[in-house]
Design a binder for these strands. Sequence first.
DNA 1: GTCTATAAAGTGATAGAC
DNA 2: GTCTATCACTTTATAGAC
Lengths: 202, 202
Amino acid sequence: MKTSTGSRRAELLALAASLFAERGYVSTTVRDIADAAGILSGSLYHHFDSKESMAEEILTGFLDELFGTYAEILAAGQSPRETLEAVVAASFESIHRRPAEVAIYQSEAKHLMQLPRFAYLNDRNAEFRALWNGILTDGVTAGVFRADLDIELVYRFIRDTVWVAVRWYNPDGALSAEAVAEQYLGILLDGIATKRRPAKRR
Amino acid sequence: MKTSTGSRRAELLALAASLFAERGYVSTTVRDIADAAGILSGSLYHHFDSKESMAEEILTGFLDELFGTYAEILAAGQSPRETLEAVVAASFESIHRRPAEVAIYQSEAKHLMQLPRFAYLNDRNAEFRALWNGILTDGVTAGVFRADLDIELVYRFIRDTVWVAVRWYNPDGALSAEAVAEQYLGILLDGIATKRRPAKRR
DNA sequence: GTCTATAAAGTGATAGAC
DNA sequence: GTCTATCACTTTATAGAC
C-alpha cells in the first residue's frame, strides 16, 4: 500500500491485469502474479494490501480513463448520430489499448460488484446506461433513429456487442479497431439486409 | 458415477448448474452444491466423479440439445433470411429455457476449453461458425444480405449479441424471448437509422 | 443414498530478517 | 524491495460405516 517507486507498482498491476484477464480473477493466485513478476508471493504485499486491492486499482484506473473520454465526446455537443459513432469508436479504441482491463470488467464485474468495495461499479453501470439512453432518445427525437424500437433493448444490444468484442479482438492483428468500429456501425445503423422490409406491426 | 435413480442425478445437476451460473464455476464449491441439495459434500461423490464431471455433463447435455434444434432448422431448407430468423429465434428460446446452461457456456467455456476433457467445445464452436458462415454466405449469394460486409465479423457480432443477452434476460419477466428475438432481428436486418446512408466507400 | 472423518494440497495473508 | 517461514483456512476428493 506504500507509494513505492510508482513504476514498479504499475508494472505489477499490468502483470496482474493480464493474468486476471487470461485465467480469470478467482483462478489467478497471488503466487501466479508473484511468479510472473519474478518475486515471491509475500513480497507482493509490500506493494498491495490484498488481491482485491489489485483488482480494484486496475478497474478504477480503467473506468476513470474511459468515462473521461466519454465526457469529452459529450462535451463536444455533436449530433446524436455523430455522438453515437464517436462513443462506439472510442469504446473499440479502449478495447485496442486496454484489452486486459476490458476483459476483466466484462468477465468479473458481475461477481466483484457483490463485494462492498466494488459498489462503485454499479454507479458506473448507471452512468453508462444514462449515456446511451440519452444518445438514443435524442436521436429518436431528432428523427434520425427509428421510433419503433425499444430504447432499453437497443442500449443493451449496443453495450453488449461492443464490449464482448474484447473476446476475439486482437490488438496485434490486421483488423484495426477503427475498421471493426466502422463495420459494426454499418450493421447497427443500416442492418445487414439489402432492402428494408415493409414496416411490420403487430 | 452410478446411474442411480436418474431423477436425483438430474436434480443435482440442475442445482449445480444454477450455482455455477450465478457464482461462477471456480467460485462454486462442492460444499455449496451439497448444501443446496441438503446433503454433505462427500455424498455428492456417490453421484459424480468430480466437480469437473458435473460441468461436463451440464454442457454436453445442453449443447447436444441446442445443435439438434439447429440441425432441424437447417434440414427445413428455408431461405437464408428465414433460416437466419429461425436460428436467432431458437437461440433466444434456448436462453429462455436453459438460462443457467447458456450462462455457464458463455462465462466458463473459454477457461474450461483448456482442459483436455472439454476439448469437444472447440468442435462445437467450429460447428457454430460453419453454420453462421453458411447462412450468411448463402444470403449474400442470393442478394438478400449486403455484399460489402465482412462475413466473419458479422458472424461474430451475431453470435456474441445473441448469447450475451443471457446476462440480462429474465425468463420470468414481461419481455418474452420471442419479443427480444423480433426486436433484435429488426436491428440486425434493418439497422436503427431511419434512412439508409449513401453507400460510403473508402 | 447419505454420513463420519479425514487426507492432501492449495489459498490469501502476515511478521520479521536481510 | 525482497525473502524466509509459516499460519489459518478452504478446497477437492476418498474410505468405510450406516
